[in-house]
Design a protein around this nucleic acid. Structure first.
Lengths: 114, 114
DNA sequence: AAAACAATTCCATAGAATTGGAAGTATGAA
DNA sequence: TTCATACTTCCAATTCTATGGAATTGTTTT
């Protein structure tokens, strides 16, 4: 996963309602929930929910399939794994390799002389 | 980590400059970088950087110490681990189940011309 | 003390995200 | 066909976020 995708995915999850929706969808698995199910569970007005589902979809964290007049949204586990891998590799590992040559040595701050 | 903290932390990382700052700080380790170092590396104007550092700090993803007139910001690895654990447990369980090609974009409703 | 330097806060502005009522589209049932 | 249901898009109001120049605070040097 690239940095831009990560920013998009992080942004998609960085909202109370959307995080709640996503967690429900993860718990649910591939079967998914319809917007109607989610409205019932979370009490979010339909247009607002629709907006949030779109954001999650834009980040490719969820997908949807249609069944008759129902839509079923479900979590994209691969994508979520990709995000977690990105965070783990790029944001949570202090690599033993030292800074590259572009790195500026930090100035050694001298305490005030006594 | 609770849901509210996760939303805060996700929001803090969901911005290009802030993610770049955080990644540099992670790579750097406990020694940290001063705002001046980061300005040189990323070319962000000082007040803008200051604003972003504040956001990261608000989410407790970074901390700072002062040495003389320099400040040194460094990544809070515990906090980051907490976030990743939250995402893994709460948002990526059921990862044994697959949800790949079943998830397709929903048909987009086209507006009828008047 | 004054100057220089590191970094911050102040603040105005621009832009993006969120919200939900009203109106539209899609599908199946009567 | 017409109706009801499921869901979406449209749109405007509001609220958050990001940006960077100017002013300010804290610290060291001269």
């Amino acid at each position: 996963m690239k940095s831009d995708d990560a920013v998009l995915a992080l942004g998609a999850l960085a909202q109370e309602s959307r995080l709640a929706v996503f967690r429900l969808l993860v718990k649910r698995g591939p079967e998914g929930y319809s917007p109607g199910d989610l409205i019932e569970k979370l009490g979010i007005p339909a247009p607002t929910l629709s907006f949030h589902l779109r954001e999650l979809q834009r980040a490719k964290l969820i997908g949807a399939r249609r069944e008759g007049r129902f839509l079923y949204y479900s979590a994209n586990f691969d994508r979520m794994r990709g995000l977690i891998d990105f965070l783990t590799e790029k944001c949570c590992s202090l690599s033993d390799t030292e800074c590259d040559s572009a790195c500026v040595p930090i100035p050694v701050a001298r305490r005030r002389r006594a």
